[in-house]
Each structure stands twice: as structure tokens, then as C-alpha cells.
Amino acid sequence: MKMYNAKQIIPGLIIFLGLITFPLWYNMGKAAPVPQPKLDTPAIQKLAQKQCVLPAAQMRTEHMQILNDWRTQVVRFDKRVYVAPDGKEYNMSLQNECMKCHSNKTQFCDACHNYAGLKLNSTPYCWTCHIAPKENK
């Protein structure tokens, strides 16, 4: 069958298909293993019971909301003590509490954040105010 204006339509179609299949050819030949956040910091090693504020699965999906709530509690209501569901008390502080155990920002925070595409300083914007821990590499 005859095609009309093939000189314009075929290149246009090829460009469109090239754009829409971007993820199919962009990742070709690249292995992208799922990152495993490292938990073997000295502080965690010393813990008798390796337990975060909440269970790991919950921390994985909801840590950002918890940190946001903590910030609101501390900055706006001057409330600094967090009582976990198991009754344990924690100091609501990213630098002094979270990062005390998870002192390996690059292998813990950044490992997943980079994989999930949250690379720029703006997202997540913890470290635009807080000071990132010094790490010995």
C-alpha cells in the first residue's frame, strides 16, 4: 500500500518510538543490584538488642515521615523525648540519635536514596541544615 508523506511521518514515528522506549535502551548492559544498607557500624555492633525505633520494615517505608514529625515536635513544641511503641525512650534528634548508630551515611542513607533517585541536596533536604557525620573511609 502506498504511503503519503512518508518522508515526514517515518522519521517522526522513529523519534517517538525512540523516546518512549528510553528506559528499554538506556539500561541495556547495565547491572543495577538492589543496594543493601550497611548496618555494621561500631555503635550497632555494641548493641545487645539490634532494634531501631520501629521495626525495620516500617522504618524502611516511613522513616521520612517520622523524621518530619520529630522535627515538628522539637522545633515547634520543644518536645524532645520520643516514646517508642515498646516503651523505650529516645532523644528526638537526627544528628545525636539516628546518626549515633547509623554513623555510615554514605553506606546507609545514600545507598538507598541514590538508587531511588533522591540524589540532589534538595530531596531529601536533611543535610541542607544538619551537618553530615564525618566518616573514615
Binding site: N27, Q65, G117, T123
Partner: peptide
Amino acid sequence: FTEPVPGFVHALDSVDGMLQIGL
């Protein structure tokens, strides 16, 4: 869908999220 994530996706992300409301 990409690894590493290309720069323009990051750029768009930060513009779209510039209100920085909530986490």
C-alpha cells in the same frame, strides 16, 4: 526505570518538589 538516574529527572524532581512541604 533508570539506573543511574539521568540528571534531567533529578532537575525536574527538585523543581516539582520545590515547595518542600512534608516528607
